[in-house]
């Protein structure tokens, strides 16, 4: 079976760990994340009748991406950049971050995710989306589970297409 490494990244508190927990089984204690700054879990997805094993790395939040150990990004096939729809500081560095991430992981599939959609009024959403400097691929809620599976599914689809 094909296996791929996926990295969840983005500022502190945007909901990476919550998304991870929403999607995966949580087989390792949370303490791994705080002690070594990363936790790995696996999920097998079926995409168009083909099985794909996703190894998802949740990394401890940093304010800026270049503070995250570079080695964590190496060897990843996809990258989920998460920001918090309710906090502008979590997307103000977005362009710079994405540029940096593309430079250190050339050719990876990237998804930009606006999380905590459950906290945003629909009228306000358009205002927020206007202010976000890059194109958003999904808006999700780790609380209700909205769109979470779809993020991983769309990544799986693209990875299998490329394979």
């Amino acid at each position: 079976m094909l296996s791929k490494k996926i990295i969840l990244t983005g500022s502190l508190g945007v909901g990476k760990t919550s998304l991870f927990n929403q999607f995966l089984y949580q087989r390792f204690d949370e303490k791994y994340l705080t002690t070594i700054g990363v936790k790995v879990d696996k999920k097998t997805v079926m995409v168009n009748g083909r099985e794909l094993s996703l190894l998802v790395w949740d990394i401890a939040g940093e304010i800026k991406q270049d503070k995250v150990p570079r080695t964590y990004f190496l060897g990843s096939s996809a990258l989920i950049y998460v920001f918090d729809l309710t906090r502008p500081t979590t997307y103000s560095n977005m362009l710079e971050d994405l540029k940096y991430l593309k430079m250190i992981t050339p050719g990876v599939v990237i998804r930009v995710i606006g999380n905590k959609i459950d906290l945003v009024d629909l009228e306000k959403l358009n205002d927020i989306l206007d202010k976000v400097p890059a194109t958003i691929d999904f808006t999700t809620s780790a609380k209700t589970g909205e769109n979470v599976e779809n993020v991983f599914f769309s990544i799986g689809e693209e990875l299998l297409d490329n394979a």
Binding site: Y32, I36, G37, V38, V40, W57, T71, L74
Partner: peptide, 11 residues
């Protein structure tokens, strides 16, 4: 996966 994460971290 975890072993690699630890290895990356240490290195």
């Amino acid at each position: 996966g975890m072993l690699t994460a630890i290895k990356s971290f240490v290195e």
